[in-house]
Amino acid sequence: MSRYIALRLLQAIGVLWAAYTVSFLVLYALPGDPARLLAGPDATDVTAAQLDTLRAQFGLDKPLVVQYVEHLGALLRGDLGTSLPTGRPVAELIGEAIPSTLQIAALGLLLAVIVGGGLALAATFTRHRGLGQLLLALPPIGVAVPGFWFALLLIQWFSFGIPLFPAVGNQSFASVVLPAITLALPTGATIAQLLSKSLVTTLREPYIDTAWAKGAGPGRVHLRHALRNAALPALTVTGLIVGQLLSGTVVTETVFSRPGLGRVTATAVAQQDIPVVQGIVLFAAAVFVVTNLLVDLVYPLLDPRIVIRKRRLPRVRVAATAGASR
């Protein structure tokens, strides 16, 4: 187990380094001059000497390799850098934005798991063929619906039509509901689509027929026997979806005019604020890595055979090698 955790940590470091490097190169490849953006909207009146001074002040005049090494060294010391337009520490900006984003992301993930899992169970549990086919057709529609269009529909229905929830802002829990539902739609549809297909396949396995032959009821067969094994692929996708939720907040927070990581990211990209964008990319990569590590640790709880296979695999190889040599 210690070797497994060590390998996962090395992979995590590699993912973080790759995310940092790719974001650094992509941001510097964007058209535009960061010095002119720093000069403000009246950059047309700024002289070339003033622009050179700004570049020297923020280290933008140095070669790309030198800037990369300096930023990477600062990152290893725990310094995410300073925002170019505002002069505030990047860690402070991200820390202020996390609570608002975490609210809608956590509630959206909870709704997605409940609705997506419930829809998959209902579609495979019902004995009415037509109803089952209808329920199975809903997840692809949910995946195909654009998030911003669905958000505008929710605002039209539940903010203007029936004034139940505020359309913009972050004043109370009510303002979290519509953004969370917007994030939950594609996420829940993905979970429902994958879990339903996995359940359909699992319910055809021989051990399910054995459970029926022993007198197990439909609820016991679905929840105790089929769901436990069918949940593994959905669990894997749920770990990947966490990163999707963070990226989805860019559109969602913009539509609902909410503060958060999404708004900070959109502003930083527009201003070519390289330290802020890199800090957010590293944070998202860290969340992704930690989530997938937790998912890997949950696997043996659902299926102990995973650990058994990993332990027996070297012995099987040794035995096969010995047999071949004889």
Score class of each variant (00 low, 15 high):
1 M>N: 04
2 S>V: 12
3 R>C: 00
3 R>P: 00
3 R>Q: 10
5 I>K: 13
7 L>C: 04
10 L>M: 12
11 Q>Y: 05
12 A>M: 06
14 G>T: 02
16 L>Y: 05
17 W>L: 15
17 W>Q: 09
18 A>E: 00
25 L>V: 07
26 V>C: 11
32 G>E: 03
33 D>I: 03
35 A>R: 01
36 R>N: 02
37 L>H: 01
37 L>C: 01
39 A>V: 00
39 A>R: 05
39 A>N: 05
40 G>K: 09
40 G>Q: 11
40 G>V: 00
41 P>D: 14
43 A>C: 01
47 T>N: 06
53 T>H: 12
54 L>Y: 01
59 G>D: 12
59 G>Q: 14
63 P>M: 14
65 V>M: 15
66 V>D: 12
68 Y>W: 13
68 Y>R: 09
69 V>T: 12
73 G>L: 15
74 A>N: 15
78 G>S: 14
80 L>F: 14
84 L>K: 01
84 L>P: 03
86 T>S: 15
87 G>L: 07
88 R>M: 08
90 V>P: 06
90 V>A: 02
101 T>D: 08
107 L>A: 11
108 G>I: 04
119 L>H: 01
122 A>I: 03
123 A>G: 07
128 H>Q: 13
128 H>L: 10
128 H>W: 11
129 R>Y: 06
130 G>N: 08
131 L>V: 15
134 L>F: 08
136 L>K: 07
137 A>N: 08
138 L>Q: 05
140 P>C: 08
140 P>D: 06
144 A>Q: 07
147 G>K: 14
148 F>G: 08
151 A>V: 00
151 A>F: 05
163 P>S: 09
167 A>I: 03
170 N>G: 10
180 A>G: 09
186 P>G: 08
186 P>S: 10
188 G>W: 03
197 K>W: 02
198 S>K: 09
199 L>Q: 06
199 L>C: 09
204 R>G: 03
204 R>P: 05
207 Y>I: 03
210 T>S: 13
220 R>W: 07
221 V>S: 07
221 V>C: 08
222 H>A: 15
222 H>N: 14
222 H>M: 15
227 L>I: 08
228 R>V: 06
230 A>D: 08
230 A>P: 04
232 L>P: 01
233 P>M: 06
235 L>K: 04
236 T>I: 00
238 T>W: 00
244 Q>G: 15
245 L>N: 02
245 L>S: 05
247 S>E: 07
254 T>I: 05
257 S>G: 12
261 L>Q: 03
264 V>H: 09
264 V>G: 04
265 T>A: 14
267 T>G: 12
267 T>N: 14
268 A>G: 09
269 V>K: 05
271 Q>A: 11
272 Q>C: 00
275 P>E: 04
278 Q>Y: 03
282 L>G: 11
284 A>G: 15
284 A>H: 12
287 V>I: 14
296 D>H: 02
300 P>T: 00
303 D>H: 10
306 I>Q: 01
313 L>V: 05
313 L>G: 07
316 V>T: 14
317 R>D: 03
319 A>P: 11
319 A>S: 10
326 R>M: 03
326 R>T: 04
